[in-house]
Amino acid sequence: MGLVSSASVLQTTSAPVVNRANPIAVGTIVWLGSEVMFFAGLFAIYFTLRGVAPELWEQETAILDVPYSLVNTIILVSSSFTCQFGVFAAERLQARATSWKPWNWGMVEWFYLTYALGAIFVAGQVLEYANLVSEGVTLSSNSYGSIFYMTTGFHGLHVTGGLIAFLLVIGRAYAVKNFGHREATSAIVVSYYWHFVDVVWIGLFAVIYLLK
C-alpha cells in the first residue's frame, strides 16, 4: 500500500499543471458552427430564388429603405463593442461599476447598454416590417417577401434570444455574492453568440440591402 500511494504522490509533483481549453467555450463555438450552417441554408435559398426571378428582385428591392436599415445596422454593430467591454469587465471579475464613468463600469452596466442597443435594433426591425407590409411586401406576397422575412426574421429571433441571454447573465451577476470564473464564462459565451449574430447581420445587410 505504501508503494501505491508514494507512486501517485510522485506523479502529482512531476506532472505540470495543464491548462485545458474551456469546454463551455469550445462547446459554444461548435454549436455556433451549426448555426453558421443554418444561416448558410437561408443565404442559399435567397440566392437561388433571386437567380430564378431577377425581375421580381428589381421591382421589390426598390421598396427597401437602405439609409434606415444602415442606421439600424450601425446600432447593432456598436452593441457588439459594448458587449466586448462587458466581457473585459467580466474577465477582471468586475460585476458592478465603481463609478459612473464608463471606464469604471462593470459587466452589468455594459450588458444593460448592450441590451438597450439590441432592443432598439429589434424595435427598428418591427417598424421596418410594418412599413414594408403597408407597401405590400408580406411573407406570402411572393418569393421575395417570403425569403426577406425568413432571413431577417430568423435573425431577429436570434437577436431576441440573445437579449434574453443577456438578462439571464446579468441576473447571475446579481445572484452571487462573489462574481467568479463561472459567471465570467457565461458572460464570455453569450458574447460569442452575440458577435456571431452581429456578423450574420452584416452578411444579411450586405446581401439584401447593398446588393440590390
Binding site: S14, A15, P16, V17
Partner: peptide
Amino acid sequence: AQGGELPEDRLDANIDD
C-alpha cells in the same frame, strides 16, 4: 497554451492524473 503535455499523452501518467 496548455503549458505541458496532457496526462493521456504521457506514458508515465496514471488514470487519476
